[in-house]
Nucleic acid binder design. Structure first.
Length: 303
DNA sequence: AGGTCGGCCTGGCAGC
DNA sequence: TGCTGCCAGGCCGACC
């Protein structure tokens, strides 16, 4: 399922293939994709425009067209963009024809494929509309310089929901999905059920580093192909081979050897090493009384 | 207002 | 073997 590293991989591969070309024709075969606009309405608004830049915001692929017209594409669970596919792949929802690069010959075709049909393309007219669209939906990118441990602490303050729910909330942190949330929490040694508001400053710092490390590793491996994610040329990513806990139920933890368990957190399948990521104690929101001897109560464990 | 849950959707697979 | 039914989950809207 495309998360930040997968979308960034697609963007990086697709940008040199499409930037500078004219969007000659777009054929939306599944009207759900362009909703609430009818396929013809969306096509009429973007056909004929030059693609100035292909960007990314969180898990959105952002097509920046001439005249300040934007298409915010979301791949959701099973979407992919394939360049010059032959033959046309199954589950093709949108066909795109691109014109030649200036001064050269030869167009290009794209196919947006999406077995589960959750993917969408939204038309945004003008830079203001584009900014408002993302401001309403996305928090800071983890690679943003402003995304500090202190910033995370502010997001988590007084919140009782599990820390994993916070990582998955795109309005607070943009781009982290189920895979990378599990990987980041494992790297930080924090249990996904831990109420977000109870993390210490040091744990926020570790979690920030864990998020960035997991996403960076994902980008370096050109994404994780678990079900349907494909590169622009149809090949899979390799990050699925480097996962430390996600989808590794029953396997030994690479750090301590304990068996990785699966549970449901925030409605998502969640993988945890409960030795490296200690389960939170009940009522941990309440500050604990100091022990008479003044010593820490922290149990010995990893890190 | 924060938190949780169901609906959207379909391929794949467990279980009978 | 073939059928049924459940599971996966990003996001949104409904509800408590």
């Amino acid at each position: 399922m495309p998360e930040l590293p997968e979308v960034e991989t697609i963007r990086g591969q697709l940008a040199p293939l499409v930037e500078g070309r004219r969007l000659r024709r777009i054929e939306i075969l599944d009207p759900r994709w362009s909703r609430p606009l009818a396929p013809e309405e969306l096509a009429a608004a973007i056909e004929g425009r030059r693609i100035e830049r292909l960007g990314r915001r969180g898990k959105y692929l952002l097509w920046c067209l001439e005249g300040e017209v934007f298409l915010a594409q979301h791949l959701r669970m099973t979407g992919a963009v394939l360049a010059d596919p032959d033959p046309e792949p199954p589950h093709t929802r949108v066909r795109v024809e691109l014109g030649p690069v200036r001064g050269q010959r030869g167009g290009r075709r794209l196919a947006i494929v999406d077995p589960r049909r959750f993917g969408t393309g939204e038309l945004l007219l003008g830079a203001d509309a584009q900014e408002a669209f993302f401001a309403a939906r996305l928090g800071l990118e983890p690679f943003d310089a402003l995304f500090t441990a202190e910033h995370m602490r502010g997001l988590a303050k007084d919140r009782t929901a599990p820390i994993k729910a916070l990582l998955l909330d795109q309005r607070r942190i943009a781009g982290v999905g189920n895979i990378y949330a599990d990987e980041a929490l494992f790297r930080a040694g924090i249990h996904p059920l831990r109420p977000a508001g109870t993390l210490t400053a040091a744990q926020h710092a570790r979690l920030r580093e864990g998020v960035i490390a997991a996403l960076s590793a994902g980008i370096d491996a050109r994404g994780a192909t678990i079900d349907d994610f494909r590169h622009v040329d149809g090949l899979p990513g390799s990050f699925q081979n480097e996962l430390l806990v996600h989808r590794r139920e029953g396997e030994p933890c690479g750090r301590c050897g304990s068996t990785i368990v699966k549970m449901v957190v925030a409605g998502r399948g969640t993988y945890v090493c409960e030795t490296c990521q200690l389960r939170p104690r009940q009522r941990s929101l309440r500050p604990r009384a100091a022990r008479p001897d003044g010593r820490s109560r922290r149990r010995p464990g990893p890190r």
